[in-house]
Nucleic acid binder design. Structure first.
Lengths: 222, 222
DNA sequence: TCCCTCTCTGGAACGTTGTTCCAAACTAGC
DNA sequence: GCTAGTTTGGAACAACGTTCCAGAGAGGGA
């Protein structure tokens, strides 16, 4: 019988822990990641995990960083600044759309290393647009905050959708509620209720980015 | 000795519970509100609270709603649409600036009754701006997501500032970190590091609102 | 006045969580 | 093959949200 040795394959490491954590978060959502469940899947104890990872916040940060790595790595040098900003925003959106728990993490913690890199990319393209130095910080922050807002709402929605039901069904139910609101108090909500079930979150998100870019262009033109 | 009667003053009620919860959240932050501590301050048991409030989520929602009530109640009919949007956004910002825990709540849960009212106000002003019906939902959502993003980041920052230190000191420390980053990798962050400690969050937030409004104006003009 | 019913109370208890602790198992260098 | 250092994993701790339930208080008929 095989001797129980500590070989490289089943050895614990920060990478393996983070990778397994991402698996569990993707499968069961934010509530699905506990140190006990993680230890069970890794066939070890909770204490062993703490040797490689300081605490749950660090674990979530590392998982979020890994999931966003692709969006940061994407090369955007060849594009015009506006297109580069769109591409970057699109990358972040797609990452959090695929891993909604990462959206929670991003909107919950202050700017951390991953988001600092995104902020850097955004700012560089803002500079490339010829924005005055005094406005660069403010306008890059506006873009970042918008992205983080969408990230948080996406995650909140994913959390709210009951495990059994699917998204169109859920949005349809909300649209019905909206349509049934008081006509005098909620005329606007009622008027857009019909657009809710069919609307594309991604398109809507990118339209918001374009709106901010148009605002920058307008402010620059004067 | 006085007979232990149940008079109106010390009677438990949803209002009194929510009011006390807001007090505790303001004093000790989001971690300061537990059912045990709340029960202790109300001189009762945790079980009694559950007779008036379904669970902690509902309690936080009610607290957030109360804290945002002022921002919604403000009458804005006399202003031009753009100024009305600014006033509304300003009201929300000031509320979450004073009660950062409310920002966490807003960015953590999907649109709830309070935020639906704000969305309604935003949308009505967007309509008043003469935006085409097809764009109203998208652009009102852009404004809302931006506001929620700032709300979340404000709350995250408030949570990160160590109880002992103050805000300028904390921002100064981050600015120092930013200034010390690799020059080749973070040119933009380094260039704006100096603006971080002195910048006004509120002004920056409102500049972002103006940017979106300018974008709407530009898109409308074509 | 008594009693029954319904509302409301508050303290104990349950299950789960993040985290800490520590004895034992393993690995590597002399 | 001893020893010093690293790594493991299971037990234990403190805290949390929530549930449970015996009983106190109030009000309305008999």
């Amino acid at each position: 019988m095989a001797t129980r040795t500590r070989n490289t394959d089943d050895a614990l490491s920060a990478e393996r822990i983070v990778g397994t954590a991402i698996e569990m978060l993707d499968e069961a959502g934010e509530g699905g990641l506990t140190f006990r469940a993680l230890a069970a899947r890794l066939r070890t104890g909770a204490g062993a995990i703490y040797w490689h990872v300081a605490n749950k916040d660090e674990l979530l940060s590392a998982a979020t960083a890994q999931v966003l790595a692709g969006a940061i790595a994407a090369e955007v040098a060849e594009h015009a600044p506006e297109e580069a900003i769109r591409a970057l925003a699109r990358g972040v959106f797609d990452a959090i759309d695929e891993h909604p728990w990462a959206g929670t993490q991003l909107s919950r913690v202050p700017v951390q290393p991953v988001m600092l890199r995104i902020f850097e990319r955004l700012g560089r393209q803002i500079q490339a647009l010829g924005v005055p130095a005094a406005d660069q910080f403010t306008w890059a922050s506006a873009l970042l905050n918008y992205i983080l807002g969408v990230a948080g709402q996406n995650a909140a929605l994913a959390r709210a959708v009951a495990p059994g039901t699917n998204r169109p069904e859920f949005l349809g139910a909300i649209a019905s509620e909206w349509a049934g609101l008081d006509a005098a108090e909620f005329p606007f909500i009622r008027s857009v209720a019909g657009q809710l079930p069919a609307h594309d979150d991604r398109d809507q998100f990118l339209a918001g980015i374009d709106l901010i870019l148009a605002g920058i262009a307008a402010a620059r033109g004067q």
